[in-house]
Computed example of a mutant assay.
Amino acid sequence: MGILNKLPNSVRYPSHKEWQLLKKLPKWWLLGTLLFAAPIMYTWWQQGDLLAQNLERTSLFLGLLFTFWFFIGALMIGLLVIIIMKGPGYVADPYYLPKEDKSLEINPPDH
């Protein structure tokens, strides 16, 4: 038995916007990173030390940068889940249930 066995007669749904958005994510990630890192880089370039001056501003833009990265990562995971769910169905290995004891259905045990 192979690793991925396609379900016979499974329906594969056509993609809509998920591939278009997934292809745009690297560009959005780069532009957002540049946008939020530009004030930090400017401060470092002008003053040479980020912690001595404008600590609150540096912390704010680092927080915005990490929040933006988290958003892009969550969006990427969501798009990948949609792409996987629209693909063909797969069959898992069968799990055969053990034989049932029909007498337990008639007279359930007392606990």
Rank of each mutant, 00 (worst) to 15 (best):
M1V: 12
G2D: 13
I3E: 08
I3M: 05
N5G: 07
K6F: 12
K6N: 07
L7G: 03
L7K: 15
N9W: 05
V11R: 10
R12I: 15
Y13W: 11
P14E: 07
S15W: 02
H16M: 03
K17Y: 06
E18K: 02
L21A: 02
K24D: 08
L25R: 02
K27N: 08
W28A: 12
L30N: 13
T33E: 10
L34G: 15
L35D: 06
A37P: 00
A38F: 09
Y42E: 03
Q46T: 05
L51K: 04
Q53P: 00
N54A: 07
E56A: 10
E56R: 05
L60E: 04
F61Q: 02
F61S: 01
L62Q: 07
L62N: 05
G63R: 00
G63P: 00
F70K: 12
M76S: 13
M76W: 09
I77W: 07
L80V: 08
L80Q: 09
I82A: 10
I83L: 14
I83T: 02
G87K: 04
G89A: 14
V91M: 14
V91N: 11
D93T: 05
Y95I: 15
P98T: 08
L104Y: 13
E105P: 00
I106M: 08
I106S: 10
N107G: 01
P108Q: 04
D110H: 04
